[in-house]
């Protein structure tokens, strides 16, 4: 996993992730693995798995006869044009050549403008001193987390990626729902999945071009009273709540 170029030497590597929502079982293993690996304090999650079927967060949807349940793993989307980057007054938020968006914690002043700019709400502000469940550090010593008054988020396990390993959430996913690779390489597994499975980005209208794609849940066998028989043209489907 070299950082500089793709195999054909044409464009620099850009790390991306594809998450297959058909495979995700909502077990939160990725969340816990991330928390342990990055030594995150209590109450802090860089990766979470949301239940997204209901009208409110973390609810099932559908009807009594036809309940539906699906999950949405959420972490930093490592956008190609991150909204958090230009608003940072100190340069603490930076983007690496390989597309990973990370934070120099020692430069963060805690102004929270990056939190306000991020369309995905994945940045965490450490308002209080870190409280950890163990009296010793867990996980990687290369990661700084829980520094009071600073903002932090998923860094794509860049220490592991640089060492040639997979991000922890991918390594531990029991459903094999996550894939990582070079988005600039058309032959990579992630590029193929995006191309063949119709993977989607979250909130593409924000113009940030996220590097995380989701393979949507196939709903051919899903029924929801009142919606089952409504046939619509794709262009008439509104974004957001109806």
């Amino acid at each position: 996993m070299s950082k500089a170029k793709t195999q054909n030497g044409a464009r620099p590597r850009r790390w991306g992730m594809v998450i297959d929502l058909n495979r995700c079982i909502g077990c939160q293993t990725c969340s816990v693995a991330c928390k342990i690996k990055n030594n995150l304090p209590e109450g802090t999650w860089w990766n979470r798995v949301l239940t997204v079927e209901g009208d409110e967060i973390d609810q099932v949807g559908g009807t009594v006869e036809h309940p539906t349940l699906s999950f949405l793993p959420m972490a930093c989307q490592h956008c190609e044009d991150p909204a958090c980057l230009p608003v940072c007054p100190t340069g603490a938020t930076y983007k690496r050549e390989d597309g990973i968006v990370a934070i120099h914690t020692e430069d963060c002043i805690g102004c929270r403008s990056c939190i306000q700019a991020c369309p995905y709400g994945v940045r965490v502000f450490n308002e209080k001193p870190a409280k950890r469940p163990t009296d010793h550090a867990l996980g990687s010593s290369a990661v700084t987390s829980g520094v009071r008054g600073t903002v932090e988020k998923c860094d794509f396990c860049m220490d592991r990626i640089d060492a040639g390993a997979l991000p922890m959430c991918i390594e531990t996913c029991p459903a094999r729902a996550r894939f990582v690779g070079d988005l600039n390489d058309p032959d990579s597994e992630v590029s193929r999945l995006i191309r063949e499975q119709g993977a989607q980005q979250l909130q593409p209208e924000m113009g940030t071009n996220p590097s995380v794609y989701y393979i949507p849940v196939q709903r051919r066998n899903v029924h929801r009273t009142g919606l089952d028989s409504i046939a619509v043209e794709p262009s008439t489907v509104a974004v957001g709540p109806s």
């Binding site: 997204v52 709400g121 989607q200 028989s229």
Partner: peptide
Amino acid sequence: AKPTLIERERTYDRFAPHLVPQ
């Protein structure tokens, strides 16, 4: 057959309704 509304629903359609005051 044309896809139903539920079949056309995109990932971010499920994401978008969750609004919180900053």
